[in-house]
Simulated assay, not measured.
Amino acid sequence: MIKIVTDSSCDLPIDTLKEFEIPFAPLNIFVEDQTFKEDIDITPEEFWQSMSKSHELPKTSQPSPADFAGIFEEIQKKGDTPLCITISSKLSGTYQSAVLGAEMTGSKAIVFDSLAGSISHGIQVLIAARMAKSGATVEDVLSALRIYRDNVKIIIPLATVENIVKGGRLSKFQGSVVNILNMKIILHGVNGEVKLLKKVRGNKRFRAAIIELIEESA
Rank of each mutant, 00 (worst) to 15 (best):
K3Q: 15
L12T: 06
F20E: 01
F20N: 06
P23V: 10
F24Q: 01
F24Y: 07
A25R: 04
P26S: 12
L27K: 11
F30P: 01
F30Y: 14
E32L: 13
T35I: 03
T35E: 08
E38N: 14
D39W: 07
D41W: 03
I42V: 15
I42C: 10
T43V: 04
P44T: 11
E45L: 14
F47L: 14
Q49K: 15
Q49G: 11
M51R: 13
H55G: 02
L57P: 00
K59V: 01
T60L: 09
S61A: 13
P63Y: 09
A66L: 14
D67S: 11
G70Q: 12
I71W: 02
Q76K: 08
Q76V: 02
G79D: 08
G79C: 05
P82D: 00
L83T: 07
I85M: 05
T86N: 11
T86G: 08
S89R: 12
K90M: 01
G93I: 05
G93H: 05
T94Y: 05
T94V: 04
Y95P: 01
Q96V: 00
Q96G: 05
S97I: 09
A98Q: 05
A98L: 02
V99I: 12
V99N: 09
V99R: 13
E103M: 14
E103I: 12
G106H: 00
V111F: 11
V111T: 07
F112P: 02
D113L: 11
D113V: 08
A116L: 03
A116I: 06
H121S: 07
G122K: 02
G122H: 09
I123H: 10
Q124P: 13
L126H: 06
I127E: 02
A128I: 03
A128G: 12
A128K: 03
A128M: 10
R130D: 04
A132Y: 11
V138D: 15
E139K: 14
L145C: 09
R146S: 15
R146T: 15
I147W: 10
Y148L: 05
Y148W: 04
Y148M: 03
N151H: 06
N151R: 11
I154E: 02
I154Q: 04
P157R: 12
L158A: 12
A159S: 05
T160I: 03
E162T: 12
I164M: 15
I164T: 10
I164W: 04
K166S: 02
G167K: 05
G168F: 03
S171E: 11
Q174Y: 08
S176A: 14
I180W: 13
L181D: 09
M183Q: 09
K184E: 13
I185T: 13
L187K: 05
L187N: 03
G189E: 01
G192Q: 06
V194M: 04
K195P: 00
K198L: 11
R201P: 11
F206H: 12
R207A: 15
E212K: 14
E212C: 02
L213A: 15
L213E: 12
